[in-house]
Every structure is written in structure tokens, then in C-alpha cells.
């Protein structure tokens, strides 16, 4: 069974947010209203965190795309009182919306703040609902949601493999964010396949995991920036 993982090269990320928008379009994430957005309630499974350092003219700016880390040892699943969030057979930290009672324990437990709460049922005008992806269910008020590594795409890949009577191959699917990334900063694949690009990159001396010291064992691996002043 492949161990799906993502490698994000911070050096290549230009902060364009193509991944953020691709995720919204793929996963039926509505734009909350301007007012809701001002209250910090916008939902963005993939979000670009930024860090600015220094003073003019010695300034540095860094972009850190942040999906769900899909921890091998996820803190969020342990606190869910109703088993709405769990690690599934593909190693993906999944979310069962109808089970969720909206207690938000998982949000508090997640050190990466990847979980989002639906404060309302965000209504899109009907015409706009025509662009819903039929493979992804929509969420309603009182439910917590987050990045699924485009799990529905994996399901399709599973179905396809089953139909053709072959085992699921690595590289048989990718997430919407990694598919669109203009600089190819986001790579996706099987960490257990030694020949895969993600496995190779994960061994790079530049590789690190966010808050690795917490023992969450994230499956999203970052590559640090190189020194820009070296020629």
C-alpha cells in the first residue's frame, strides 16, 4: 500500500496561491462572505503562510504552503469523541462529516491549524452551484473540514485499478494543488517507493517537517530555501 506524501519546496514557492484556488475549485469550498472573512472564518484547506523578516532594505519574505500534514501520529484523531476524524487505510487523515458534532476538539488539538469550522451553511447562488465537483460532498453548518489529499481522486484511482484488475500504482493520482503548481514546488507521491521523487526529495539535506519535535510524524515534508546570496 503506497504511503502518500507531499514534498513542498519552499525555495520554489512564489506565493502565487494557485494551489489555494485549485483546492477550492476541486473540493467545493465556498467563499464565505466579506463579513465572515473579516471575522477570520474563511475556509482554505491549503493556505500560504508567509514570514517577513528584517527592515527595509534588508527584507526577507518566505512562503510556506500549508495543507493538512496527514500525520502518521495525528493528534486530532485522538481527541475526537465521535470518531469523525480518523486515519484511513491509505494513511490519510480523513473526516466523516455526518458524524462530526462540531465540538472542535480536533481544531484545538491540531498544531498546524489545518482544520476549519463551518460557522454557517455557506450558501452559493444556485447558478454557481453548477460548478460543484460531484465527487466531493459539501459540508454544512457545525461541521469541521480540512484537506483530504484529494481523497476522492485516490478513490477513483482505486476503482480504476480494481476495474483493470491490477494493484494501485504509485503515481496513479495527484492532488489538485500539486497538479496546478506553476513552479512545481508541490510534489506528491509514495514515500515508501524508494524510486519515487518524493522519497528521493524527502532524503534531501534540505528536508524538514513542521513542528517535527511534537512527534506527529507529518507526511508533508518541506525543503528549506537555499542561501540567496551565494552565487
Amino acid at each position: 500500500m503506497p504511503r502518500w506524501a507531499m514534498v513542498i519546496d519552499i525555495d520554489k514557492c512564489t506565493g502565487c496561491q494557485a494551489c489555494v484556488l485549485a483546492c477550492k475549485a476541486e473540493n467545493n469550498i465556498p467563499a464565505v462572505s466579506r463579513e465572515e472573512s473579516a471575522r477570520g472564518r474563511s475556509i482554505s484547506w491549503m493556505r500560504i503562510l508567509h514570514e517577513v523578516e528584517g527592515e527595509y532594505p534588508d527584507v526577507r519574505l518566505r512562503f510556506i504552503p500549508r495543507p493538512c500534514m496527514h500525520c502518521d501520529n495525528p493528534p486530532c484523531t485522538k481527541v475526537c469523541p465521535v470518531m469523525a476524524t480518523y486515519k484511513d487505510r491509505d494513511g490519510i487523515v480523513a473526516q466523516i462529516y455526518p458524524r462530526c458534532i462540531g465540538c472542535r476538539f480536533c481544531m484545538a488539538a491540531c498544531p498546524y491549524t489545518v482544520k476549519y469550522f463551518n460557522w454557517h451553511t455557506y450558501e452559493m447562488p444556485n447558478l454557481q452551484q453548477r460548478m460543484h465537483n460531484p465527487d466531493v460532498s459539501v459540508r454544512t453548518k457545525g461541521v469541521v473540514e480540512k484537506c483530504t489529499f484529494c481523497h476522492h481522486r485516490l478513490q477513483r484511482a482505486h476503482d480504476e485499478a480494481r476495474r483493470q484488475g491490477r494493484p494501485l500504482e504509485a503515481g496513479s493520482y495527484t492532488t489538485a494543488c500539486s497538479q496546478t503548481c506553476p513552479t512545481g514546488a508541490i510534489r506528491f507521491g509514495d514515500l515508501d517507493d524508494r524510486d519515487s521523487e518524493v522519497a528521493r526529495l524527502a532524503k534531501s539535506p534540505r528536508a524538514f517537517r513542521l513542528l517535527a519535535e511534537l512527534g506527529t510524524q507529518p507526511k508533508v515534508i518541506y525543503l528549506t530555501e537555499r542561501d540567496r546570496h551565494a552565487t
Binding site: C16, Q17, A18, V20, L21, A22, K24, A25, E26, P125, N126, L127, Q128, R130, M131, H132, N133, P134, Q179, T180, C181, P182, G184
Partner: peptide, 30 residues
């Protein structure tokens, strides 16, 4: 329901920027 980059196109080789990903909103503006 979704827009992706055309992998065979010489300009973007399958990739898109955030504007491109949002383009269905232009069609479905109520």
C-alpha cells in the same frame, strides 16, 4: 465543473495560476 491546465500546451504545460483556477466564476456569475 473544473478547469485544469492543458498539459500539451507550450505556454503552461498543464499548470495554471490562481486566476485560471477561478475562471468558472466568470461563467457562473449570477
Amino acid at each position: 465543473v473544473k478547469i485544469e491546465g492543458n498539459p500539451d500546451h507550450p505556454v503552461n504545460q498543464g499548470r495554471l495560476c490562481p486566476k485560471g483556477q477561478s475562471a468558472l466564476h466568470a461563467l457562473y456569475d449570477p
